[in-house]
Each structure stands twice: as structure tokens, then as C-alpha cells.
Simulated scan of single mutants.
Amino acid sequence: MKPLGDLLSLSAAVCWSVYSLVLRKLSAFYTVMFISRKTFFYGMVTAIPFLIAIPEHTPLDVYLQFDVWSNFLFLGVFCSMIAFIIWAFTIKGLGAIKANNYLYIQPIITLIASALLLGEKVSIVGYVGCSLILLGVWISDRMSRCR
């Protein structure tokens, strides 16, 4: 039994929760764009040394190729920066707890997209899992309204 993957998943969830709560507090003082710009910038600044520090995995001259830079730019701008901006607006509009609750719908969207775009068959486990996710989100939403 190797619990390292479970521990990493749990750590990622805790980090995301802390990030969402900090983001909620910061949004009272700063604009969404300012917070997202700082998050993105410092994320990139802290990632670059790891690319340089371990050159035996990938030679440094690979990073100078156009395809590599264009992929970095695409991933950095569209998959990270815009996602952080959308998330910050979501936290500001819905609140940290409700926004994080709706993150559970992501596997359902993935299941539907894989069925429609890739032609994958949805198993009974997939249907049961989607039902449980929707039930959990609904219960959580109802409980938060009762408070």
C-alpha cells in the first residue's frame, strides 16, 4: 500500500482551500486583476528555477525552440492566467465555500465531454458517481441556505 498519491491529493485540496480563503480576504482590498496578475507572476517566477536547476531531464536549449515557447505561452496565458482570473471573479461573486462546492461538478463535465468528443462509453460506475456528486452538491447547497 502506497499512500503517497492520496497524501498528495489531500495536500492539493488543502492548498486550494487555503488559496480560496486567502483570495476571498484579499478581494476586499485589491482588484481581481491585481491579485491574478501577482499570482500568475510569482507562480512563473518560482517555476522557472526548477526548469534550470534540473537540466539533465531536458537540455536548456530545448526551451529556446519556438514550439516550446509557444506551448508555454498558451499554457501560461490561457490555461493558467485566464483560469485564475475567472476563479477570482467567481470567488468574489459566489464566495469561497459555494465556489469550491461547485468544483465537484468538474468530473461530470469531463465524463460528458469524453463521451461526446472521444466516444467513450459511460459505465454504471460513472452514472452512479455523477448522481452522488450531484446529490452532494445539492445537499451542500441546501445546507448552506439553511444557515
Rank of each mutant, 00 (worst) to 15 (best):
I86D: 04
K92D: 09
L94R: 05
L75V: 05
W69Q: 13
Y104P: 09
I86S: 08
K92V: 03
C79L: 08
I108A: 09
T90M: 03
L103W: 07
N100Y: 00
K98L: 07
K92A: 10
I91P: 02
W69P: 03
C79W: 06
S80F: 07
I82C: 04
D67L: 03
V77D: 08
A88Y: 01
L111M: 15
I85G: 01
V77Y: 06
V68L: 10
G95R: 03
K92Y: 06
Y104M: 14
A96P: 02
I97E: 12
F72Y: 06
N100Q: 08
P107D: 05
M81H: 09
F89I: 06
G95T: 02
L103E: 10
A113N: 13
I86A: 09
Q106H: 13
T110S: 15
A113R: 13
A96E: 02
F89L: 08
T90S: 06
S70L: 12
A99Q: 00
I91V: 09
L75M: 10
A99V: 00
N71I: 05
F89A: 05
A99M: 02
F78M: 05
L73K: 01
S80H: 08
I109P: 08
A88C: 04
P107Y: 05
K98V: 11
I108S: 10
Y102L: 04
L117E: 12
I86Q: 03
A96D: 02
W87L: 07
I109N: 11
Y104T: 14
D67R: 05
Y104Q: 15
G76M: 00
N101S: 12
S114G: 15
I91A: 04
Y102N: 07
L117D: 10
Q106M: 14
N100A: 04
L73Y: 01
A113I: 14
A83D: 07
V77A: 08
L73C: 02
L75P: 09
A88E: 01
I85Y: 04
V77T: 09
N100I: 04
S80W: 05
L73T: 05
A88W: 01
I109E: 12
P107R: 03
A115M: 14
N100E: 03
G76E: 00
L73I: 01
P107M: 01
A83G: 08
W87I: 07
A88S: 12
F89M: 11
I105G: 13
S114R: 15
L73G: 05
A113E: 13
L117A: 14
A99L: 02
